[in-house]
């Protein structure tokens, strides 16, 4: 029995090697950099947690982090409800289904830097359709100079690019609800809102967990699009952690602080994702101890 179990490890070995080379070893290199300093010549000196303390104390890091949190918060607040609404409005049968699915999938197929370029041009005041039209309407819009305009442009772009992901996930949750649920709701005289609240939303919960996690992680790690559209400007007002990190690592070649920062960045994403996951799946399981009596609450 024992030997059989041990042999089984050989099946896991290829994947283990793959993960080691693709993830573990690069990660350990970063860990290595984050606790050492170098003065060229490939000589390294142990500095302990100094880089971490420096990054955590720096105002530049705080500002970028706040921008990231604000950006991801706004993205989730807009894309999740919008995605649910669009999914609810999509047809369930007939030729409209495939048309809608293809239209929804289109933005998802476009590479990040292309999306950035599209919006960079689209929003330009001199030649862009959006920017020029707004200017013609007398709206004072300029994303290269105005912080608010820059943010509006980035958020619009992200909503345009990624809401369909939420839509597709929610739609898959909705179509998996058997007809009998809607029929029973009609028999019970449930309102449209009650159907949403007690049938559709609970049945979408699992896919919503995935949607929230994906949209949080992706928006928190956003790099290419703001880099292409605003380059982090005007000033530093759209410089997110990722842009900051690249500037530090490649622009300034501060490998130690950059390594420390990327580890902190990674841990923040992990922590927040865990919080989302725990909160959203917690409601799933808390059940028996609910003290509300059947007739007592509305």
């Amino acid at each position: 029995m024992k030997t059989q179990n041990n042999k089984a490890w050989f099946f896991v070995l290829p994947v283990l090697l793959l993960v080691a080379f693709s993830a573990v070893i690069p990660l350990m290199t970063v860990v290595n950099y984050s606790v050492q300093d170098s003065f060229g010549n490939n000589e390294f000196y142990w500095v302990g947690l100094e880089w971490f303390q420096e990054v955590l104390a720096s105002e530049r890091f705080h500002n970028s982090l706040m921008r990231n949190l604000l950006f991801s918060g706004l993205i989730l607040l807009i894309e999740i409800p919008l995605g649910i609404a669009v999914a609810l409005a999509m047809p369930r049968r007939g030729w409209g289904v495939s048309v809608c699915l293809v239209l929804m999938a289109l933005p998802l197929l476009i590479p990040w830097n292309v999306v950035g370029t599209i919006w960079q041009v689209f929003a330009r005041v001199d030649i862009g359709l959006l920017g020029h039209s707004l200017a013609a309407l007398g709206v004072d819009y300029n994303y290269t100079q105005d912080t608010f305009d820059a943010w509006v442009t980035l958020i619009l772009m992200d909503v345009w690019h990624w809401t369909s992901l939420v839509v597709l996930l929610c739609y898959s949750g909705l179509v998996s609800i058997p007809d009998a649920y809607y029929q029973a709701a009609r028999i019970d005289g449930a309102s449209r809102w009650a159907v949403f609240r007690y049938i559709q939303l609970p049945k979408m919960r699992r896919v919503l967990v995935i949607a929230v996690l994906l949209r949080f992680m992706d928006s928190f790690m956003i790099y290419t699009e703001p880099f292409v559209v605003t380059g982090g400007g005007p000033g530093n007002t759209t410089t997110f952690l990722s842009i900051d990190l690249v500037q530090m690592a490649i622009g300034q070649f501060d490998l130690g602080p950059a390594a420390a920062m990327s580890l902190i960045y990674f841990l923040i994403i992990l922590l927040i994702s865990w919080v989302f996951y725990t909160v959203m799946t917690h409601q799933d399981s808390d059940s028996v101890t609910d003290s509300r009596q059947g007739g007592n609450h509305q």
Binding site: A180, D188, G189, S191, G294
Partner: peptide
């Protein structure tokens, strides 16, 4: 119906109360 239809997020008593509450 053929397959039982329940409102998963509600308790048993709330399920029974649902048609009356509507």
């Amino acid at each position: 119906f053929q397959f039982p239809v329940l409102y998963d997020t509600m308790t048993v008593a709330e399920n029974l109360a649902f048609p009356l509450r509507n």
